[in-house]
Design a protein around this nucleic acid. Structure first.
Lengths: 228, 228
DNA sequence: TTGGATCCATTTTTGGATCCCA
DNA sequence: TGGGATCCAAAAATGGATCCAA
C-alpha cells in the first residue's frame, strides 16, 4: 500500500514531513511509494521530483498554481554534489513569448513561483547509483530583498530583449541569477513568438532557470551542510 | 492492407479521388481503411471526417494549415438529410479570444480556411445505420463575392462584440451565414479571454460555425442533388 | 563547467464533428 | 429545430528535470 498522504494543512506540517525524509535513500522512498527506481535518470528526468511530490502530498499537475496550493508553496528538488553544491540549474517556468514583454516582474509567473519554495536537497552525483542517493535537509526559502533585486534585474534585461523580438540573440550567458535556456522536446521544436517587427513567427520554446551559482548562495546563506 | 494514399499532387487528382467515392457506403470505406464502423457517432463524432482524411490522403494533424497543404484545400464532410440538405452546421475553427478583435476578415483564419473547400456529401439521417450511409458527390467551393461579403459582415459583427469583451452576450442567433457557438469538452471548460475592461479572464472556448442554411445555399447554387 | 539539447508523463488544446432538449 | 452542450484522437504545451559535448 503506497504512502500517498493528503496535502499538508500548514507550512509546519509540510516542513515536518520534509525533515522526516532527511537521510532516506531514493530506494526507500520508492518502496514506500510502490514504484521502482530507474537505473539512470536519462529516460526519467523528472522521476525524483515526481516521487517527492507524491510523498509530500503535492496537488499534482495543477497548472500555473503552486504545488501546495493552499499553502502557496512550490516544491523543487535540488541535486547536489558531494560538497553540498547544486550540480544543476533549477527550472522555473516556460516563457510566454507573446506577452512576457508587457509584464512587470512583480506580476510575473517567475515571481509567483519563487515567492516561497521548499527546496529538497538530493544527492545528485552521477557515480552514486540512483537507488542509493539520499535525501538531505529541506530548506524553505523566500527571496531576500537582495535576491529579489537580482532576479528583477535579470527579468528586466531578458524580457526586454524578448519584447524587441530578439530572443534568438539570447544565450545562456545572460543573467546573473536567472538565465534563459531552451525548454523543448528537441532543437527542432517551435512555438509562436515575435520577430523584430512584432510579427508572430515560429520560435524555439524557452524557459527561465535559476543558475546553480544562485541556488548555491541560497544554501550557503542558510548553512545547509553537505550530506555526511 | 489499408488503403492510405499519398497526398494528391493536384486539385484534379483530389477531385478525381473524391468523385470515385460517390455511392460507396461507409462500411465499404471502413473495410478499405482497415477500421471498424462505430454503431453510433455519439462516441465517435469525428469518425467520418477522419476516415475521409485518410482515404483522400490529407496530411493529418497539421496545425493551422489546410488539410491538403500543397493544394491549399480544406476538407469538410457535410452530412445531409434525404432531401439533400445539410443537417448540421459546419465547424470552421476555434476563436483566439485574445487577438481576434484586431484581425481583419481578409487576414483571418476563417477566411484562410474557407478559401477553397472540398465538401464531401455524406448521408447523415439518424435512422440510417452508420455503416449503410453513403458518400455523395463532392463539391469544390470557393466563396463567391456575395458569400464572402456575407461572411465578412458576420465576422465584423461577431469579432467586434468579442473585442469589447462582451462574448458572454453572444448567442448562436447572431450571424447570417456564420455563427459563434461553444467548442469545448463541456460547459465548464474555460480558456483565457477578455472582459469588458480588457482584462484577461476565464471564458468558455468557442468556435465559428457555418450555418446549415448557408451550406444548403451553396449546394443548391451548385445543383448538388440528393442521393438516389 | 555549463549552455544547448533533450527526456517522460500528464494536461490542455485543436481539429474532426454530432447529440439532444427546450 | 437549432443553439448550447458534448465526444474522441492526436498534437502540442507544461511541469517534472538531467544529459553531454565542447
Amino acid at each position: 500500500m503506497p504512502i500517498r498522504p493528503a496535502p499538508p494543512r500548514s507550512e509546519a506540517e509540510l516542513w515536518s514531513r520534509a525533515r522526516s525524509l532527511a537521510g532516506l535513500s531514493l530506494a526507500h522512498l520508492a518502496t514506500d511509494d510502490g514504484c521502482t527506481v530507474p537505473d539512470k535518470l536519462l529516460h526519467a528526468k523528472g522521476w525524483v521530483g515526481q516521487l517527492l511530490e507524491r510523498r509530500l502530498g503535492a496537488s499534482a499537475g495543477s497548472k500555473d498554481e503552486p504545488d501546495f496550493q493552499a499553502l502557496g508553496i512550490e516544491l523543487k528538488t535540488l541535486p547536489v554534489d558531494r560538497t553540498g553544491r547544486p550540480c544543476e540549474s533549477t527550472f522555473v517556468c516556460t516563457i510566454p513569448l507573446l506577452d512576457v514583454a508587457g509584464t512587470e516582474f512583480e506580476q510575473s509567473r517567475v515571481r509567483r513561483k519563487l515567492n516561497r519554495v521548499l527546496f529538497v536537497i538530493v544527492e545528485g552525483s552521477r557515480d552514486i547509483p540512483v537507488a542509493n542517493r539520499r535525501i538531505g535537509e529541506p530548506l524553505l526559502w523566500s527571496p531576500s530583498e537582495q535576491e529579489e533585486s537580482l532576479l528583477k534585474q535579470d527579468w528586466d534585461e531578458l524580457t526586454g530583449i524578448i519584447g524587441r523580438g530578439e530572443i534568438e540573440s539570447i544565450t545562456g550567458h545572460l543573467g546573473n541569477a536567472m538565465q534563459v535556456r531552451p525548454k523543448a522536446r528537441d532543437s527542432h521544436a517551435r512555438r509562436r513568438g515575435l520577430d523584430e517587427d512584432g510579427v508572430v513567427v515560429a520560435r524555439m520554446p524557452r524557459g527561465f532557470y535559476l543558475r546553480a551559482t544562485f541556488t548555491r548562495a541560497i544554501l550557503e546563506r542558510s548553512f545547509v551542510l553537505p550530506l555526511p
